[in-house]
């Protein structure tokens, strides 16, 4: 617990993150490189979909991380709300644009996958609609930080959006089980094990780990940026008080 408290100190976090960054960069490049090589050159086509199945290697990592980043945002917002810790809201604020990017990637690559397989770019089924709502939640969250001049108020309002919006996460995950949708059911996290053949699953896992490493790298850079921004504000306040 004491260690956790140390980590919650922005200065300590900054120094630790400096050490992680080169490794996450290296992992992101090598895992994505390996995943792309396996996915594009080694993996077989699907027995039904043919070559379009390769879109899975960008669509699924982006879509799962779109939800994961929101979960991170909700948890860190809750921590910062309960413990009044500024680092939590820095992390949430830094994560939002990354989550929004993953969500739009999931939506666009999904459309590009849906057209040749389903026969449509878009359909208002429960899965697609709940993911679109996720995208709007990210935009709303990012917008709130811009609207409020007072950063403490912004942090509170943004935390409320992050927490209320988190209810959407189980809806996204279970939409394909609770309602009938055009989007197919889960292929990886299933009670009876994955329904993806290992030749297709293994490149997907590499891509997924690569996306996770990318997330860690960009998140670190953005959190560092937030911490610096906070220091800038502190100096500005100091100067204006001395004047």
């Amino acid at each position: 617990m004491k260690k956790l408290h140390k980590l919650a100190n922005p200065g300590k976090f900054y120094r630790l993150s400096e050490k992680i960054l080169p490794w996450s960069n290296l992992l992101a490049i090598s895992l994505c490189g390996l995943g792309l090589y396996l996915g594009l050159f080694v993996a077989p086509p699907d027995y039904q979909q043919g070559e379009t199945v390769r879109i899975i290697y960008v669509h699924v990592p982006a879509a799962t991380l779109a939800s994961l980043v929101y979960a991170i945002m909700a948890i860190t917002s809750a921590i910062s709300f309960i413990w009044k810790n500024p680092l939590g809201s820095f992390i949430a604020k830094a994560a939002a644009p990354i989550g929004a990017a993953f969500t739009i990637i999931a939506i666009i690559t999904g459309a590009l996958w849906g057209k040749p397989t389903w026969g449509t770019w878009w359909i208002w089924d429960a899965r697609l609609t709940s993911v679109l709502i996720l995208f709007f939640l990210y935009l709303g969250y990012i917008g709130v930080w811009q609207i409020f001049e007072d950063q403490n108020k912004a942090a509170k309002a943004a935390a409320i959006i992050a927490l209320v919006g988190a209810i959407n996460l189980p809806i996204i995950k279970f939409s394909v089980d609770w309602w009938n949708t055009l989007h197919q059911g889960a292929s990886i996290i299933r009670l009876d094990g994955p329904s993806i053949h290992s030749d297709i699953l293994i490149p997907l896992i590499f891509m997924w780990l690569g996306f996770i490493s990318y997330l860690i790298s960009v998140l670190i850079i953005r959190i560092q940026s937030e911490i610096t921004l906070q220091k800038i504000r502190a100096i500005q306040i100091m100067i204006s008080e001395q004047k």
């Binding site: 792309l36 070559e51 379009t52 390769r54 879109i55 960008v58 669509h59 982006a62 990637i105 666009i108 690559t109 590009l112 996958w113 057209k115 040749p116």
Partner: peptide
């Protein structure tokens, strides 16, 4: 078109 635009957009 579909496969490469997906990877390109990402």
């Amino acid at each position: 078109l579909y496969v490469w635009s997906s990877f390109g957009f990402t």
